[in-house]
Design a protein around this nucleic acid. Structure first.
Lengths: 369, 369
DNA sequence: CTGAAAGCGCTTACAG
DNA sequence: CTGAAAGCGCTTACAG
């Protein structure tokens, strides 16, 4: 009753159900022209024989796309990992298989080659293009391959990449900045995630809030995604006594920044307020709990898959895709600025430069990373 | 020169190279019996036509396994995510394709079904079996399917699952506990990750250190992987004035536990010492920086793939697999216990029960999760 | 609504 | 060392 490999094939089912194998094919592909009784018989037989269609054979014979490979430069940073989770859920729900391939941002040719290797005939691609490597990968996907991408929210006048989705954090970044301003801070600094265009929507929202308040805009610092970068940049900011509020490009950067402030003898939020971005699962458990802008990347992952599906023939009708919205979550890491008298107190010596109170920790962190 | 789908096929290459298509097949499969000049000609032609073997066709025709699906109950918790990263790297290096499928730990039948769906003919499986769902999934993989698994280190007398790899944290847990004891603590409590056997190696190491010191062993608390669980359990521990040291099953639990201590008015490490497990990337940036036991799950992921490969015909010869070793990393979250006089001071009222100093935070955290 | 044909791109035996 | 055959499990036209 089964093929020589131990698994039932379409022909085994056909034989057992007393129909031709084409009919079985029609049933498993939801083809309309099969009589209800025939369909039921076939379905029962499939169940009885534990028949599972062979994906390789379907793909080879030109069946519908049912596999998607996710291309990303990283799989463990929060935004990336959460997006992956959302995509996985969606693929599971729709009976797709999900592959993952990391593209290393070496040379353009290297990226192109990596992308080509990742492309399977009869497969679709989702690229997480939050960074330069992702964008390069997206650009390398041949036009013939079905693709959808998660990208940074496009800024004014920018063309969004083909079938891409995003979270627009402009308003939330503006709100976070205004929140800081309302708390009494006279300006807000920005530690940005990297951007190959030089401006993210969160940066633009921050800047806009400052401008509307008639404030001059400090130069944003940008370089990395990780805590080590937040620590490094935070160390620079900590030396400036007039810095009392920092909006960070993500929560990891915020954690690094908070640590840098701490090592410089400035406490958060008493001396300086820090706001993050993302709302990582641990944000509420930190001390101080992180005030941050929540971004639902898992939902974005699901939306991205929906977008891909809508571009595929076998998709459900294109529903209106609802992009997740970023949202300020107020906790403990931001508060009123210190009273001027307090600000010049014990933590800062007379000559006005911050002194690392925790020199050992500073040395350790500098060495570890 | 190309097939009707726009990509070159084995026959296109054969025609262009002036050989039969079987010879091309031999070349791409590294079959020995091809003359060097012929091989070179074919190789050049492959490059020129940008030929890429079709995986579906290879799989269907019974070619070697070159795809692996990772089964896990979770993809974003640190250990799981890091393992996934390691597996991805290894698959990329060896020209394998990597799929990911999350198995939800609903019913046994559900798990079995999920596993079956994940199995592709001519594909291998890696299961991350750190938890019950993973172990169930592993048990459901048919004996005919090539598989390797990452499992908790087997305890004495336990049979390790077939072709599995692990990190043995016994010695490191013992060392961490002894470190705490040497610091002057009179006992150490343990907040464990879940275990379906009731005992992890890290729990055994902790217990052994205590026993060898002639101390009575407090009942370990165990329930979850996440910070929320650490917060909950930490809250209970915080109420006991004699608790001065806690070894946590992972860093997220440690973060939750630290927060619970903080909310109960007990500072870390002044009042209570906390040690984590894993050494997540942010551990060094927390305040206090986490003293923890490093476990290289990424390396374990690579080892697991190597294990899988060694069980496959196409593997390189079985090399001695070197499992990563767990290692205590001393930072700031553990220190000497408080002086008895200090211990009964401001944080604890006369009747001896800890009072949540930060009631608002407590209410918030209880509500958020 | 259902059956017979041709072929997707490859691989493993089998011949020479 | 190299070529001709058969077939992996399915799908899409094509017939009836």
């Amino acid at each position: 009753m089964t093929g020589h490999r131990g698994t039932a094939s379409i022909r085994d089912v056909a034989r057992a159900a007393g129909v031709s194998y084409q009919t079985v094919s029609r049933v498993i592909n939801d083809h309309p022209s099969v009589s209800p009784p025939t369909r039921q018989t076939v379905l029962d037989t499939i169940e009885r024989l534990e028949y599972r269609p062979n994906r390789a054979a379907r793909a080879l014979a030109g069946g519908p796309v049912q596999s998607v490979t996710v291309l990303a430069s990283n799989t463990s940073l929060y935004g990336f990992a959460a997006a992956l989770e959302g995509i996985e859920e969606a693929t599971r729900e729709f009976g797709f298989v999900m592959g993952v391939r990391v593209v290393e941002p070496d040379t353009p040719a290297g990226v192109r080659d990596a992308v080509e290797r990742a492309i399977e005939p009869a497969g679709a691609i989702i690229v997480i293009a939050f960074d330069k490597a992702g964008v390069d990968a997206l650009a390398s996907v041949p036009a013939t391959v079905p693709v959808a991408a998660m990208v940074p929210a496009p800024t004014e006048g920018e063309h969004p990449a083909r079938s891409s989705v995003w979270i627009d954090e402009y308003a939330a970044a503006k709100e976070a900045t205004n929140y800081l301003l309302r708390l009494g801070h006279t300006t807000v600094h920005h530690l940005s995630i990297p951007s190959w265009t030089g401006a993210t929507k969160r940066m633009l929202g921050w800047r806009s809030a400052l401008q509307e308040a008639g404030l001059s805009v400090p130069k944003p610092l940008l370089a990395g995604w990780e805590a080590s970068w937040g620590y490094e940049a935070g160390g620079k900011l900590a030396k400036k006594r007039d810095v009392t509020a920092v909006l960070c490009g993500n929560d990891d950067i915020a954690v690094g920044c908070i640590r840098a402030m701490h090592d410089a003898g400035r406490s958060v939020p008493e001396d300086v307020s820090i706001i993050g971005f993302d709302d990582v699962p641990l944000a509420q458990f930190y001390t101080p709990a992180l005030t941050t802008v929540r971004q639902d990347f898992k939902a974005l992952g699901r939306v991205c898959f929906a977008k891909l599906l809508s571009g595929l023939a076998n998709g459900t009708r294109e529903q209106r895709l609802r992009y997740p919205v970023a949202q300020l979550v107020i906790r403990e890491s931001a508060g009123p600025p210190p009273k001027p008298s307090h600000r010049h107190a014990t933590t800062l010596p007379a000559h006005g430069r911050a002194v690392p109170v925790n020199k050992r920790a500073f040395a350790r962190l500098s060495k570890e990373k």
